[in-house]
Design a protein around this nucleic acid. Sequence first.
DNA 1: CTGAAAGCGCTTACAG
DNA 2: CTGAAAGCGCTTACAG
Lengths: 331, 331
Amino acid sequence: MATLKDVARLACVDVSTVSRALNNTSYVHPDTKARIYAAAKELGYHPNVMAQALRAGRRHTIGVVVPRLHLAIFSEILQGIEEEGRQQGYATLICVTEDNPATEKECLNRLRGGFADGIIIVATGRNGRLLRDIRASGIPVLQLVRKQELRISSVTVDYVSCGYDAVQFLYKKGCRQIGLISGSLHLAPYKERQDGYQKAVRELGLDENYSECSEPVNSFEYGYECAEQLLDENEDLDAIIAAVDIQGLGAIRALTERGAKIGEEVRVVSLTGHAVGGMLETSMTSMEMPAHLMGSKAMRMIVEEIEAPQAQKPGLQHLVLASTLVEREST
Amino acid sequence: MATLKDVARLACVDVSTVSRALNNTSYVHPDTKARIYAAAKELGYHPNVMAQALRAGRRHTIGVVVPRLHLAIFSEILQGIEEEGRQQGYATLICVTEDNPATEKECLNRLRGGFADGIIIVATGRNGRLLRDIRASGIPVLQLVRKQELRISSVTVDYVSCGYDAVQFLYKKGCRQIGLISGSLHLAPYKERQDGYQKAVRELGLDENYSECSEPVNSFEYGYECAEQLLDENEDLDAIIAAVDIQGLGAIRALTERGAKIGEEVRVVSLTGHAVGGMLETSMTSMEMPAHLMGSKAMRMIVEEIEAPQAQKPGLQHLVLASTLVEREST
DNA sequence: CTGAAAGCGCTTACAG
DNA sequence: CTGAAAGCGCTTACAG
């Protein structure tokens, strides 16, 4: 790769002049400029971003930590992040943790210390302290989807309303025995959706139907098992709410195998709204979270924080967006 | 952030000694070492990766260019890339192009010139020349999934066999009127799958049934429309092959709406094998591509090329993996 | 209008 | 065993 020095030599000027000409950072005589441009072109010069970054103390890179990409809403969120980042001149570095705290820790430790100017974390497995450490060391950190640390800015969805609204909706459809398939209650999104469910069910004076399978996970199989269990325990069950779509797919599968008429005998709602819901034989009603928007908002917030002058950093911000109900055939 | 200099000052030694101690790069007196470690710990020192990178001329970062992440096999591939990269000590930078050549070009231009030590490109929209340029400038480039440039290393699947095998499989199931839903024939994976289809159909003396909808895209709606068209044009159609899963979902949807018995009257096979296929009411048979493996292989190949001494660069390599048929209910 | 110099934070021959 | 110096490729006051 050609460097500034090479261009300078070819154009018979100092490197500083080349830098000024190429960056348009102060007046350079047109003739000199022309020579420099010609030289740069001839050599196929591209500035070395690393050197620029070292100089500026900024890499224009944001690290994103996600639990997984495949079959999850995270991939859509990530697209939102990346797109907005590109527009703002920031590159997006990713780390996939599989919800493993050790992997997450490893990722975070790499990201700090120069790999990224800021970190958007979608997972969060017991590394709260590390996160606060990183933040304290001057690297902006933002939680997305899962808000575990109150002292760290976040972009989330109103999960309580999400659960609440789903129950209300089903109630209006005539459902009286509504089951819930959730996830690990250590994770805020699951806990809060369950809170919303509980609130609505109690207000309406309905029975609470929880699935209590072993280790809650975000998977098709888990959705399937939980649905089986809910149906076994309550033969009057007339609705199932699943925290995430692939659990919903599992529930639909279980219902299909039992020959239950989905959307009539038993209604199904997902609380996450992955686009696959609309592509099924029986398309699935869901509370859709504005995934792309959440990603771009998060990126914008973190870039703002990075670029704000030291004196006027925005401080703690929690942005909460709303889910919207998209009614489909499963209800 | 504390720097080497800070640590040196606190430990009362030269920065070079700190560097040597921390990197274990030559003998340092145990006492000095202890002081240095203590100082580093006290200051919470983390080396500045940028500076290291500038010095070493290597960033330990690979750029990955993908058409999209959501609802595509690419997210699984990307997980494979990232995981392997992490193990090899490389970070993964992503760029989402939406198959837009201009966006792709922008991404590539950023990635060169220091953003990445190597580039894995999954898209490829008419930027072959730029790719060769980048490669010529010393940055390894690797094509994944789509092989457009013969002079650039690649990891792909044997798409011809994939199409061929699907037809053979359906033939053995008794199908005689097999329709194909493909994608843009400018893209090698689609073209080759179609070639395989054609080869098998001709060998077996069957009719060729192509969907000829307007602009081929990788979408649910496109799959739906094409299926409709295939069914309208040939009322004896007894099988549909879809290039990618979400087209397959569209086809299944179309069949469902017509009341056709999937897996009996009309069989459906996808040629890509996104995991969602196994989670449907009628689970979908598919030729599964080893997505995760493709990602990790690609990462390993490019790291090898980067780290090989100048004298013994591996040179052009094309790795072709096999798809495997996973039979499910749709056939 | 342009050059010479300093410095971003690190590593690594070179001395001693 | 450890320090002083040079240099990775850039940018930016500071002179002139």
